[in-house]
């Protein structure tokens, strides 16, 4: 039984059943990061996937853009409680990038420029659920929001959509990434409200 806060509720925002529990709608695009925003030149940019035998699949900026690029229209949900509906992105599907990756491992760790890490099960990256995104609302992705490219895994809380993505490492079992070691949930499903421990 919840504790009633006397007199609260007069300024409430309209409730919206299309939002996961505990989220509120924002028109802004707030920023959550643990430190300064890294600046990465697309000339130096590279994305890689490393499998269990140490085989590395690599793409530079041109090679990534030569792959099929998809338009993504999706809702995003941040653990700090804001949600944004109908955001537009362009990027390359992880299905495309994993096509020639040979692995039996089922977990991944995303590594980023700047040192950030986050863990995601492989199944959550495949079947049209995740992208390497480099364009937001018709423009190059801002560095504050993870540009030049970020992981986009919109069905999980947005900290899983690692900014400044650099690579994915296949793992035999789940391991906590950066925010996960600092108190956030290992999986982060917004509809289950898996925010913290």
């Amino acid at each position: 039984m919840a504790v009633i806060s006397r007199g609260f509720g007069s300024r409430r925002r309209e409730s919206d059943d299309s939002l996961p529990p505990g989220q509120y709608l924002t028109k802004d695009f707030p920023v959550l990061s643990a430190g300064p925003t890294p600046r990465i030149d697309t000339a130096d940019w590279e994305f890689s996937i490393t499998n269990e035998t140490g085989v590395v699949s690599r793409w530079n900026w041109e090679q990534l853009h030569a792959l099929p690029i998809e338009d993504i229209d999706t809702d995003i949900h941040c653990v700090t409680r804001w949600s944004k509906l109908g955001t537009n992105w362009r990027g390359v599907s992880l299905d495309t990038l994993f096509k020639d990756v040979d692995t039996v491992y089922e977990h991944t760790m995303a590594h980023c420029y700047g040192g950030y890490t986050t863990n995601i099960p492989l199944a959550d990256l495949l079947d049209g659920k995740a992208w390497i995104a480099f364009d937001f609302d018709g423009e190059d992705l801002d560095p504050e929001h993870g540009g030049p490219a970020r992981l986009l895994v919109p069905h999980l809380y947005f900290w899983k959509s690692a900014k400044w993505i650099k690579g994915l490492q296949m793992l035999p079992q789940d391991q906590p990434g950066f925010w996960e070691q600092n108190g956030y949930n290992m999986y982060g499903d917004p509809w289950q409200e898996q925010r913290y421990w």
Binding site: R12, S15, G22
Partner: peptide, 14 residues
């Protein structure tokens, strides 16, 4: 911080 109104409406902020 979670606030609950008399009618059950809730809001949470950090």
């Amino acid at each position: 911080v979670r606030l609950t109104a008399e009618d059950g409406y809730q809001a949470v902020r950090s």
